[in-house]
């Protein structure tokens, strides 16, 4: 276990591992997203209340879930970087931020587009919407803080603290629909007494969620590769690899 952990934390090993994993995640993501979009937009029946408008769920729910997942992933990586002083973990956290920001924007935008026909408004200062907007500002703040500090080690520590403090917002986003009387509807996937959706509606949604996770895996590993190259540019293995091609 520890030798595995040690090996994984070695940048050249991680770089090669990433390079071999990226195509798997990437093609799996493409296959799942395309087939689930077909299942959700074509095969699934229309909702009895929202008609075909409910189909926005297939892009909104996966992006909202991924926006929270990426944040937890980023904060965990930052914590590992702080506790064990592992530089690779900081590189992973840095790679997550721009992806997280774009997916949070996507969750807000698709939610807004869904809100217009169903609630009659693009935006409301509701607990769920506001806490998701704060999530976007946390990602942007993380990136802004890093770009303001030249020294990589100091940027790693300062941004890790920001990422960890921001974790308090994650349960707020998640439970906002239960804690407050929200305009936003409750969880569609998990309800007491089993799933709230029939299988032909739920299956494309699950496929889409897994597809989004694989997409994140592929893009995050690609960004980690870049981050490792920058951080290890004075090491022999990077020089050998770059000049040998």
């Amino acid at each position: 276990m520890w030798t595995w952990f040690h090996k994984l934390s070695s940048p050249p090993h991680f770089y090669r591992l990433s390079a071999s994993l990226i195509p798997w995640f990437g093609w799996l993501a493409a296959a799942l997203i395309i087939s689930s979009l077909y299942g959700g937009l074509v095969l699934a029946p229309a909702d009895y209340q929202q008609g075909d408008g409910f189909r926005i769920i297939y892009v909104h729910v996966p992006s909202a879930m991924l926006s929270l997942f990426i944040y937890m992933f980023m904060a965990t990586a930052a914590a590992i970087g702080m506790i064990w002083r592992m530089k690779l973990a900081h590189a992973v956290a840095v790679a997550c931020a721009p992806i997280g920001a774009s997916i949070t924007f996507l969750a807000l935008a698709t939610g807004s587009i869904w809100g217009k026909p169903m609630w009659g408004t693009w935006w409301a200062w509701d607990a769920r919407l506001t806490s998701e907007l704060i999530l976007l500002f946390l990602y942007l703040g993380y990136m802004g803080l890093r770009s303001a500090i030249d020294d990589t080690n100091r940027a790693d520590r300062a941004s890790a603290i920001l990422a960890l403090v921001g974790v308090v917002n994650v349960p707020i986003v998640h439970y906002s629909v239960t804690w407050w009387n929200s305009l936003h509807q409750g969880s569609t996937l998990m309800k007491k007494g089993g799933p709230a959706l029939p299988p032909d509606m739920a299956l494309p949604l699950f496929g889409m969620i897994i597809g989004f996770m694989c997409f994140f895996g592929a893009v995050a590993l690609t960004r980690v590769k870049r981050e490792v190259l920058v951080r290890e540019q004075n090491s022999k293995w990077v020089k050998d690899m770059v000049t040998s091609k």
Partner: peptide, 11 residues
Amino acid sequence: GGYAAYVWSSV
């Protein structure tokens, strides 16, 4: 079902 603008813009 009349939701074309909303569904297709979000997709």
